[in-house]
Design a protein around this nucleic acid. Structure first.
Lengths: 218, 218
DNA sequence: TGATTTTAGATTGGATACAATATGCAATAC
DNA sequence: GTATTGCATATTGTATCCAATCTAAAATCA
């Protein structure tokens, strides 16, 4: 076998392509809260029938990104401030526990990756990339935990509040604070200081939540 | 308007009927781990086309109850002991926090409901009902928390390990222990002893996990 | 005019039909 | 006899079509 081979069964079906595209559009805010998603329109845009569209919409609803009503269609789901707050609190409660498990297991490689994530994040010019980089930083740290179920739950949580995270980073000092806090977390991980890493993570998330709430009320 | 009216848009579509039926069959163990779910077969059984079946299967996959592969179909997902353990630990971590928030807000009504849940559970003869009653007991307690997102996550977690919970209750002293622990939790809630309620909940879940693991290894 | 009914178009839910892929068995080659 | 290839069947993915429902504008009536 001299040729480069892929597992074709893992390539994307029409449904997953559409799902990924819509998911991306929603969590980046291209599709805004309350906007209608017309099956026919999307189907024409992707040049497929409505069937894969409908299945993609089902998946989006399962992820909480849209809301559908029988015979009325799908709209991009909004989050009230209360709902967003609760999800931030969920993260602030679970992520420190995950990092607790991860710190003792982090290889030098992972620590280096996290460090360079931080640096790329710090020097990124494009605000559109901040959200992705921030997300990658967090998942990089948690991967060593060996807790795939917890991470699955956290990923879903982050999906739901992604637009709010992006908004928070765009606030006056959002980016700078996130940066400093990220570097501090990496330092704690390098020092294998479990308690400190956990507490910094907790404060990092709660801080984002608080600054978002403050900004919201103006 | 003298007649009893329902919001028909909230009635079950073919998809949700099929989903509920399959979900029930899986979590009660009627459909066993690894069993194939053929779209055509299910469609004939429910006398609908494959479209609603496919949508129901998607939902089941999102809940982690089945696994699908392109062009190969769906099989009932199994859980390794490690995966089940992690989910027990997730519950053992999150549920005490939820009950912490719930205890100060529990009305007398809720406390009475929980108490009678316990009593029904204690006197239930049919092992098939134990799982449902146990589940209802836990959700009754948590509803006062005002944390719908946390509860959604916990419900998904309980769905995944439901067959294991049922198995655990069937162990020699499983039912008796669960009973005693449930009554103790209710007592702590009545006494508004937040710390005790949380700790008892944590031990209740970890105890179930440990007894399951011990039994598994024989 | 203003409220109600009618009606036509738009949109979604579901059924049927067809295409793409997997699987297992027979045929062939060695 | 074993391994490979070709073919038939089973199963899933997608397209097309029809039915059920919603929406909003036109028509009707007081």
């Amino acid at each position: 076998m001299k040729i480069q081979a892929y597992d074709i069964s893992k390539t994307a079906s029409a449904t997953t392509i559409v799902f990924d595209a819509l998911r991306h559009a929603i969590i980046t805010g291209d599709l805004k809260q309350g906007e209608h998603l017309r099956q026919d329109e999307i189907a024409r845009a992707f040049n497929v029938s409505r069937i894969p569209i409908r299945e993609a919409l089902q998946k989006l609803e399962q992820h909480g990104l849209i809301k559908t009503q029988r015979y009325k269609g799908a709209v991009v789901a909004g989050l009230s401030l209360e709902e967003a707050s609760e999800i931030f609190e969920f993260r602030a409660f679970v992520e420190p526990e995950v990092i607790r498990r991860a710190v003792p297991r982090m290889s030098q490689q992972v620590l280096n990756d996290a460090q360079s994530c931080c640096e790329v994040f710090a020097s990124a010019e494009d605000p559109m990339r901040w959200g992705d980089l921030n997300r990658r930083f967090h998942t990089t740290l948690y991967e060593s935990s060996g807790l795939p179920y917890h991470m699955e739950m956290l990923n879903k949580a982050m999906d739901r509040i992604d637009p709010y995270l992006r908004a928070q980073l765009l606030l006056s000092d959002g980016m700078e604070r996130a940066n400093n806090e990220h570097f501090a977390i990496v330092e704690a991980c390098k020092a294998k200081d479990v308690d400190r890493a956990a507490e910094l993570t907790r404060l990092h998330i709660l801080g984002a939540k608080d600054s978002l709430i403050r900004h919201w009320q103006n």
